[in-house]
């Protein structure tokens, strides 16, 4: 078989990746799509609230901080769901504390932002700032 010329390398790469895509089954493609690593709006808010809360951050103070900044009540279940997703992406880590009587004998789950999480927050901030600077004046919109 004739070897492709060096100029065709991009074409070869693309053909290879297409073949790889066809080789994968439908389910694994969907799973890969679900494991995307960018931050959703609510995830970013939770991550920022976690940074604001500082050390000893667990579900309740994080949700209180978020509710205070947002100006409305937050569901603790959605905060935990976002924190679980962030942990899967490697942006936060968690550790269980000791069970206490004031929590009905249940342990606290402490969260902490990882280095990757901090990098992601900075990156998102940079991108958002650039996007905001590029915007024309928004007529009829209220902050």
């Amino acid at each position: 078989m004739a070897r492709p010329a060096s100029g065709d390398s991009a074409l070869v790469d693309r053909t290879d990746s297409t073949n790889r895509l066809h080789g994968q089954d439908f389910f694994s493609i969907i799973e890969q799509m679900r494991e995307r690593n960018y931050l959703g709006e609510f995830e970013l808010m939770v991550l920022l609230a976690l940074i604001q809360t500082g050390d000893d951050a667990y579900g309740l103070p994080i949700s209180q901080e978020l509710a205070k900044r947002r100006g409305r009540d937050v569901s603790l279940g959605s905060v935990y769901a976002a924190l679980d997703r962030l942990e899967k992406k490697g942006f936060v880590s968690s550790a269980l504390g000791d069970p206490t009587p004031e929590r009905g004998g249940r342990a606290k789950r402490y969260f902490r932002v990882t280095k990757a999480g901090l990098c992601q927050v900075h990156e998102t901030r940079k991108v958002l700032t650039r996007l905001w600077h590029g915007l024309p004046a928004l007529k009829g919109a209220r902050a």
Binding site: Y58, L60, L76, G77, L96, R103, G104, R106, K108, R109
Partner: peptide
């Protein structure tokens, strides 16, 4: 952890 937070 969620149950404990709600209890608290």
């Amino acid at each position: 952890a969620l149950a404990g937070d709600l209890f608290e």
